[in-house]
Design a protein around this nucleic acid. Structure first.
Lengths: 151, 151
DNA sequence: TGGGACCATATGGGCGTCAATGGGAACGAC
DNA sequence: GTCGTTCCCATTGACGCCCATATGGTCCCA
């Protein structure tokens, strides 16, 4: 059975927040309400396969990847390789009472994030980016796939 | 009968800890609680089939590998090789009162681990890696064919 | 329509608890 | 005896939980 969400429960747009002295950062309120609309409490965070970004979503995000792994021989090199990324590159986190998350070394090392985090909506999940890396990737994406766009 | 575990009892993410002067290393708290949730006390350690890593889990881990061996032609070079690794390369270990394990020569020789250990979650078990070997293997896996989006 | 009360969000920081780590001492094998 | 292992305790630094403040916006009402 497929659950249907309202428009507001989708993750849209982007925002940049500061990391405080204790290494915490506030998740934008819009993303937090989207999470609670989806009943998500445990956050699954995964190192993106292509970009230097962390994808954040509910446990269903992990489920989707695990189904993909399960579709091949569990002892095959392919399954081993995918598990290395999905399980070894993923982690569960929770927000504190104020809706903040810890920017751990796990996140810093992979994204290059230091003092600021750009939150980027991806419809069914969102991502954590180093601000400059995001604007560059976004600019590159415009060049690449949307070059036929009129000036 | 299949036992179902909560989200938190899975082995996820990776963390690097130091080996002390006595050759001990702390198992990350999250992995320890996953072990106790599964009622695992005796740890079974064996060499990964593909990567220079040691897999660690409960006795059920051995069961799964033995079933895998049994599923292929027992006289094939493949079964011979797997048995050599599983039966000849497996060992039982226990954690001390503080949740640390000894980094034996068995582990050092196969993984190249010396002063630091990277613990890598693999959902139903976890692995011990030499830190640099892990980041290289993960980067290589990312270069592979896995689609950036699950099916 | 301007002013002000009110509210939500983002941010800062205190403090207790626990994990990671280090090292001493007892114990056992050889 | 010596070496290696196990048990126990100490330290410290990180993290979770709590409350306080700032900032910007919205709403209401005179």
């Amino acid at each position: 059975m497929e659950r249907v969400f309202g428009v507001m429960s989708r993750f849209l747009s982007n925002a940049t927040n500061r990391v405080d002295a204790k290494g915490r950062v506030s998740v934008p309120a819009g993303f937090r309400s989207a999470l609670s609309e989806r009943g998500v409490q445990e956050l699954y965070c995964l190192q993106d396969f292509i970009f230097p970004a962390i994808s954040v979503g509910g446990p269903d995000l992990l489920d989707r990847y695990e189904r993909q792994i399960a579709s091949v021989d569990p002892f095959s090199p392919e399954a081993n390789r995918m598990s290395l990324l999905v399980h070894g590159g993923g982690v569960f986190m929770r927000l504190d009472a104020e809706g903040r998350l810890m920017v751990t070394d796990f996140i810093r090392d992979f994204t290059g994030i230091s003092s600021e985090v750009t939150f980027v909506g991806r419809s069914d999940h969102f991502q954590l980016w180093q601000p400059q890396a995001f604007s560059e990737a976004q600019a590159a994406a415009r060049q690449g796939r949307m070059s036929s766009r009129p000036a």
